[in-house]
């Protein structure tokens, strides 16, 4: 339904259809002008050189164009709602049913080298990377899921970890993006410390290890689902629903980077992010939490943790919060 401002932010993307370019141009000026990292901004020229330090970089600021403008949903959004009316309940049922099969609770338990800190660092980097390419939130979610599930199958050395990150993103994009990235672009992002052969090999290994089971239910799906439900129920106004979704998405991104949140299922994180977003935005008609089927203690526990995470990383969410919130 409602377009993510984020998804359309792909300036200068060569193969984008015209409609996308138009929307990219409509992104807020500060968003476009502000680089993702305000450090030296220089490319590390050779292997093993030090990376540019980027003080004050805010990985999450792209999210967005922030609060959605009021107004009726676009025609396409109405179309999606139509399909949602026909099939929404069964989509939810199936995705929810698949959740436990695709949920890696402790992907690092058997890892000799990869630490929660390294995972956090990698995902904190993948977030601006996926945004830079204009990939959907769905791609990011799938990438992180593929990464985590692969980690449960195979010990990975610390110095291959970044390669695993971009390869997971590569696979995720091939699943859902119209224009997946080129291998060269991904290698370039890693300062060319890996080879094409390595990336393609690892892709094969991942596909093999996961037996091509790649269609995980994602936080992205559940955020959309709950937001649709809310708009459909006619209680919430569309603007509140969309604002909550935009903020919740930012929180969900944060939570993916923090290993402590791995124990929570995507549907739980989605509903709790929306709940917290409603609270922070002081919405008049907050989401009805019963639709998730989770007991109150479970919801409360997860929401508390999210709240803590948001207060630790508040500066990452400036664009989705009302001015002067923090």
């Amino acid at each position: 339904m409602v377009t993510h401002p984020l998804s359309h932010e792909r300036p200068g993307r060569p193969r984008s259809p015209p409609s996308k370019r138009r929307r990219a141009a409509g992104a807020t000026p500060e968003e476009r002008a502000q680089p993702l990292c305000r450090g030296l901004g220089l490319r590390a020229p050779v292997k093993k050189s030090k990376c540019p330090s980027c003080p004050g970089e805010r990985p999450l600021q792209g999210d967005a164009a922030g609060l959605c403008a009021p107004g009726s949903p676009e025609p396409a959004a109405r179309l999606e709602l139509q399909a949602f009316r026909d099939y929404g309940a069964s989509w939810y049922r199936f995705r929810k049913g698949l959740e436990s099969k695709f949920h890696p609770r402790e992907p690092l338990a058997q890892q000799p080298q990869v630490t929660a800190e390294a995972r956090c660092k990698l995902i904190s980097w993948l977030i601006p990377v996926h945004r830079h390419f204009g990939f959907s939130f769905e791609s990011l979610c799938l990438a992180v899921n593929t990464l985590d599930r692969f980690l449960t199958t195979t010990p990975v050395a610390a110095d291959c970890f970044q390669l695993l990150g971009v390869t997971s993103l590569f696979i995720a994009c091939k699943q859902v993006e119209v224009h997946p990235p080129r291998v060269k672009q991904l290698l370039d992002l890693c300062c060319d410390v890996f080879s094409r052969q390595q990336l393609c090999n690892l892709e094969c290994i991942i596909l093999n290890k996961l037996h091509f089971n790649l269609g995980a239910p994602t936080i992205s799906f559940f955020l959309e689902h709950f937001t649709h439900l809310r708009v459909e129920s006619c209680q919430a106004d569309a603007r509140e629903a969309n604002n909550a979704k935009a903020l919740a998405k930012g929180m969900a991104e944060l939570s993916m980077a923090d290993y402590a949140f791995n124990k929570y299922a995507p549907s739980l994180l989605a509903i709790c992010s929306l709940r917290l977003a409603d609270q922070m935005l002081h919405h008049q008609n907050p989401l009805d939490l019963h639709i998730s089927g989770y007991p109150e203690e479970v919801l409360q526990d997860c929401t508390d943790k999210l709240h803590l995470l948001v207060s630790l990383n508040g500066d990452s969410l400036p664009h989705v919060l009302p001015p002067g919130y923090f």
Binding site: C51, Q162, L189, C190
Partner: peptide, 22 residues
């Protein structure tokens, strides 16, 4: 602008990548 942003995203998250082998 794009390429400058791209450069800023370039990162090496770990140092030595002499080889990868399963």
């Amino acid at each position: 602008e794009k390429s400058s942003r791209m450069k800023k995203l370039r990162r090496t998250l770990s140092e030595s990548f002499s080889r990868i082998a399963l």
